[in-house]
Simulated scan of single mutants.
Amino acid sequence: MTDPSTEPVVVARDLWRTHGRGPRAHDVLRGTELTALPGEIIGIVGRSGCGKSTLLRILAGLERPDRGSVFWNPGTRAGRPAPGSVAAVFQDAAGSLDPNWSIARSVAEPLARRLTRQARRAAVLEALRSVGLGDLDPSLRPARLSGGQCQRVALARAFAARPGLLLADEPTSALDASAAAAILRLLRRAADSGTAVVLVTHDRDAAAALTTRLLGMSDGVLTHIG
């Protein structure tokens, strides 16, 4: 469980991000702030286009804010999270997998290079089993998988990394009810092991049941709602 005295995994301060130019420009984030502690699951709900995914991309170090700062722990290298400290699963799971890589290689990507080949394979198979893909041939390429399977592979890759911060953008959107419930249990398990989880979802009921804090986003502003 979360220890209030624990150092934050990530702190985002006064984030501003504008998309578009001229008369079409609009502020996607407007002074957004967020702090996540180890063991927390922070749920973020809001309508499409309100800035949720942009916030996650900034927290992942994949996009920079126009103004504001993000601080990661452990360590920051040139304003970016330390390698392996952050894992992200976005809505386009298939697009996040290299089409020329086998599933095994994609899941193994974040694993420590010092592991033996046998240990890496064992970790990959365990990660796939954890998301219900224990029977999947790990030599397959993403093109041979369904959208739901690609979503699970992306989740397996994230869980295998055992990051300090796990960012999940609608991670159950391509899954049936049973598979979605299993993934939410895995997010709970990750948090119980000390990972900070930030979950973006349209399912407010599921978020309320799972999360430590529930936040709403509207017009680029986060507010506490539960």
Results as ranks from 00 to 15, higher is better:
191 A>Q: 02
196 A>L: 00
183 I>L: 13
199 L>Q: 07
193 S>D: 11
178 S>W: 13
202 H>Q: 04
175 L>A: 10
184 L>M: 14
201 T>C: 09
195 T>Y: 04
202 H>T: 13
204 R>E: 15
192 D>K: 08
177 A>H: 04
174 A>V: 12
181 A>N: 01
172 T>R: 01
168 A>Q: 09
185 R>L: 15
181 A>D: 14
200 V>W: 00
168 A>P: 05
175 L>S: 03
202 H>K: 05
185 R>A: 15
196 A>I: 04
197 V>M: 00
195 T>V: 13
181 A>W: 07
167 L>A: 13
184 L>R: 13
168 A>L: 12
199 L>G: 10
176 D>F: 00
191 A>E: 10
175 L>T: 04
180 A>L: 05
165 L>G: 06
191 A>H: 11
198 V>E: 05
203 D>L: 10
180 A>H: 00
170 E>W: 04
190 A>S: 14
186 L>G: 10
194 G>N: 02
174 A>E: 10
202 H>Y: 02
183 I>F: 03
198 V>R: 04
169 D>M: 06
179 A>Q: 13
174 A>L: 09
204 R>P: 00
192 D>H: 08
175 L>Q: 07
180 A>I: 09
190 A>Q: 06
198 V>L: 03
183 I>W: 02
198 V>D: 06
198 V>G: 12
181 A>T: 10
169 D>S: 06
187 L>Y: 08
187 L>K: 10
202 H>S: 05
204 R>M: 15
186 L>Q: 15
181 A>R: 14
193 S>I: 05
182 A>P: 03
187 L>T: 11
171 P>C: 12
192 D>Q: 11
176 D>A: 03
171 P>T: 12
204 R>F: 03
171 P>F: 01
170 E>H: 05
176 D>S: 07
193 S>W: 02
183 I>N: 08
173 S>A: 15
172 T>A: 12
171 P>K: 13
174 A>F: 10
172 T>H: 01
199 L>P: 09
170 E>M: 02
192 D>Y: 06
174 A>K: 05
168 A>Y: 02
175 L>N: 03
190 A>D: 07
198 V>Q: 04
173 S>F: 06
197 V>W: 01
180 A>V: 08
174 A>M: 14
199 L>T: 07
200 V>A: 05
178 S>I: 15
193 S>M: 15
166 L>F: 09
173 S>I: 01
184 L>W: 07
184 L>K: 09
174 A>G: 09
194 G>A: 06
203 D>G: 12
178 S>M: 11
188 R>H: 11
194 G>R: 01
172 T>Q: 05
165 L>Q: 08
178 S>G: 12
199 L>D: 08
203 D>C: 12
188 R>K: 07
183 I>D: 11
167 L>M: 13
195 T>H: 00
185 R>C: 09
180 A>W: 13
170 E>S: 12
182 A>L: 11
182 A>Y: 02
166 L>H: 11
174 A>I: 08
197 V>G: 08
193 S>R: 08
197 V>D: 01
193 S>A: 14
198 V>P: 08
198 V>F: 00
166 L>Y: 02
187 L>C: 01
201 T>Q: 04
179 A>Y: 06
204 R>L: 14
175 L>C: 12
191 A>M: 06
176 D>C: 08
184 L>V: 12
200 V>Y: 00
181 A>G: 15
195 T>Q: 02
189 R>M: 07
185 R>G: 15
191 A>W: 02
191 A>C: 09
184 L>S: 08
189 R>H: 11
202 H>D: 09
166 L>D: 06
188 R>M: 10
168 A>V: 14
